[in-house]
């Protein structure tokens, strides 16, 4: 009965979700399943999706690689911050957040200036007599852009999880004869799984649907699914196909989140926060 008394508190959120998420989702589904020319029900767009499967696989591949790289880079950082003193923690936490205060578009554009053939890095290399490197317009540049932009989304949930790990558990493990590696592998790491799952989801989901990063840092063969969707709407070629692609992407994201939730479901703070 206690729940019912506070239920009304969620009403504003429910209205918000209905107006700006649920109804638009239905509109997307409607467009995805209608013919662009006649507006009647048709599976034409769904059939055309197969044309873009290679692009979708590429997007998923790049995003997974980015999420894993973020994990490898972000875990030690989060671990370190969580074990600093209280003031240092606050300060470092702010440092991680700091890049997010500047426009994501600008930060990506800055990488173009660094990486391009006539960019800062190549000009320095040329000035000291080294050969110029081909950096921009490679898959690596796109992954770099993703890792750079989404790394804070990995560090923050990891930090939040690690900082809550009960120090007594670690002491207990040490008392029972675990060495440092064993403490980490058998106590700390399993307890940080919810954070890892959160982080991976929070990096993977925006990365898989991004379009700006690949347009600026990628070449003609690193087109991602987000680029295709953006173009279907913006260039007015076929918004219905764009809607079908968006729907496919959304289903994919839901499935991923679902799987993540299932894995993390058993532990205490199991639910993945998205």
């Amino acid at each position: 009965m206690k729940k019912n008394k506070t239920g009304f508190l969620s009403i504003p959120y429910l209205i918000w979700m209905t107006a700006f998420t649920l109804i638009p989702l239905c509109v997307v589904a409607y467009y995805a399943l209608t013919d662009p020319a006649t507006g009647v029900f048709s599976l034409r767009n769904v059939r055309e999706l197969s044309l873009y499967m290679p692009v979708l696989w590429r997007s998923i591949g790049y995003s997974l690689v980015s999420a894993l790289l973020c994990l490898v880079l972000g875990y030690p950082v989060a671990y370190y911050i969580a074990h600093c003193g209280h003031t240092a923690q606050k300060f470092l936490y702010m440092l991680v957040m700091l890049p997010m205060c500047m426009s994501f578009l600008l930060r990506t554009l800055a990488w173009v200036g660094l990486l391009q053939d006539t960019g800062i890095i190549n000009n320095i290399l040329a000035a000291i007599g080294l050969p110029r490197l081909r950096m921009i317009r490679t898959p690596g540049a796109v992954v770099l852009g993703m890792v750079y932009n989404y790394l804070p989304y990995m560090i923050l949930p990891l930090y939040a999880t690690i900082v809550k790990i009960d120090g007594r558990l670690i002491e207990a493990a040490e008392d029972l004869g675990c060495n440092g590696v064993q403490v980490f592998a058998r106590v700390v790491l399993p307890l940080s799984v919810p954070g890892i799952l959160s982080g991976v989801t929070m990096v993977f989901v925006p990365a898989v649907s991004t379009f700006y990063i690949s347009q600026k840092l990628g070449g003609t063969d690193t087109v991602l699914i987000g680029d295709v969707i953006e173009r279907q709407f913006k260039q007015g070629s076929n918004p219905n196909l764009g809607a079908a692609l968006s729907l496919l992407l959304m289903i994919l994201v839901f499935v991923c989140t679902g799987i993540m939730n299932r894995f993390g479901g058993s532990s205490e703070e199991g639910s993945v926060m998205v």
């Binding site: 020319a37 087109v223 279907q232 070629s237 076929n238």
Partner: peptide, 13 residues
Amino acid sequence: ARVMESLFMEARN
């Protein structure tokens, strides 16, 4: 115009 646009998309992607 529609055919041209979708062919262009295919060529580009």
